[in-house]
Design a protein around this nucleic acid. Structure first.
Lengths: 254, 254
DNA sequence: CTTGACTCTAACGTTACGTAATAGCTTAAC
DNA sequence: GTTAAGCTATTACGTAACGTTAGAGTCAAG
């Protein structure tokens, strides 16, 4: 009967010798016997076992569980597989969602990055600075927008402007207290208008860009988490309110 | 300016305190300062950073790389995201393939398990034993096939039958030497016929079951690896040859 | 002043091996 | 016979991202 050395077996199964050592260590796959000098010797039986092990390993089943499966004849393989199927399916769901998010993020980075930076800038500057920054931004718009915006952020640091921050805070608090209202509620829209005006004080925020910002609130974790901090569902609430605002209140803008 | 303790920040971000400790340890997110007694104190700035970190962490980007992204302004985020997008896409591919394999495996386990066991039995029994086993199998077919087959395997162990094994080996060698031939090549089909006869010596292998076995050769890692050992592509080759055989040579069977 | 809730550091545990490092064995060639 | 190539063994640290005690100091409230 043919016996296999570690190397032979490893080549057959296309795994490393170390892996076989490991499986021996943890008792998952012991060699049929040891040679006089302690060399591991495997038989067909082990080859078969190994194939099963690798089969299950491919399905991302932890080695401990694999040991169960191949050792314990009473182990319910079907149940285990069913379970892992669910796990994998969920995993796939998550990753697919991630792909979407990444795509969106990349789009933001490519096209709308300025918008994010606007927010970053808009938050934390004195009005004079903001106006100047804005002017610069408008001047160079389209050519080096990204680099410039980032550059300015780094240069200016975060020398916050008190009044602005407080106003911002108040608006967020107000909106937070209104979560649950219908987005087209007049009271909500009033605050949104205030928000919109606030932004337009130092920035030229078109209807389009405002709508885009609204979407960012729910699609970008960084914004979402920032607003969820105030109240659960706030991010989505604001976004919906902004949508309504942009759809209806165009007259205010011009 | 509001400062956050570890716990506060951890609650805001819905992560563990340990994680914040960890991020501090590895320098990914240092607190703004330490209190007199060494307590970690975080500011808004850190909150923002943390949000970014968690954002990237969600996309399964390793912490080291995240550190790059948020520290090094020259780091090409777009490229990094593009890269990870590819990674994730590939992952998803693999997992989806796994789902298919798992489904098939479960089907095999539920309905066709006997087939796998047939192969296991068929390989390694003396003819008398095999015949007896077969008789038993036929008798109890359909009620406890799975348990019985397993039971028999365990009972009989692997007391191999020399001639049978050798014949088996020779067939495999022959087929291995023919990989690359068209599956409907007469020489191939002759060997397949021999294979089929060999199986029918001790087992009642219908055209259907034989075709099913052929599929197993390529769909079940355990079989695939077994045959790939002889020659790369052998498993698929045999399967194709069996398909041709089952499609054309029905007259031989009856 | 004593709880209870919170904080710190230090350090081991987790998963499935990779990667040396050190040393003995086998075998074919010279 | 020796030597070099190639195999084998054991031991043990490294990896990623924290979880989980464990021991000990700190803070606010009753």
């Amino acid at each position: 009967m043919k016996v296999y050395s570690v190397r032979e077996l490893s080549k057959l199964a296309k795994i490393s010798v170390r892996t076989l050592h490991h499986y021996d260590d943890i008792g998952l796959l012991k060699p049929a016997k040891r040679s006089e000098k302690g060399y591991r010797l495997y038989h067909q039986e082990q080859l078969l076992l190994l194939q099963q092990i690798l089969f299950y390993r491919e399905m991302a089943i932890p080695l401990k569980e694999i040991a169960q499966i191949i050792n314990d004849p009473d182990f319910d393989v079907l149940k285990a597989l069913e379970f892992h199927k669910g796990e994998i399916a969920r995993q796939i769901q998550r990753w697919e969602q991630l792909l979407v998010t990444i795509d969106k993020t990349m789009l933001e980075l490519k096209n709308n990055k300025a918008m994010i930076n606007d927010e970053a800038l808009y938050r934390g500057f004195k009005p004079e600075e903001a106006k100047q920054v804005r002017q610069e931004a408008i001047d160079k718009w389209g050519e080096e927008e990204m680099e410039n915006a980032e550059q300015r952020i780094r240069e200016k640091g975060n020398t916050g402007w008190k009044n602005h921050q407080e106003n911002d805070e108040e608006i967020n608090q107000l909106l937070a207290s209104m979560v649950g209202f219908k987005p087209d509620d007049v009271r909500v829209q009033k605050v949104i208008l205030r928000h919109f005006k606030q932004m337009n004080l130092y920035y030229e925020v078109s209807k389009e860009r405002y709508r885009g910002l609204g979407k960012l609130y729910v699609e970008d974790e960084r914004f979402t988490q920032y607003y969820e901090k105030y109240k659960e569902g706030l991010a989505r609430f604001i976004q919906q309110a902004i949508e309504v605002f942009c759809d209806n209140d165009l007259k205010v803008i011009t």
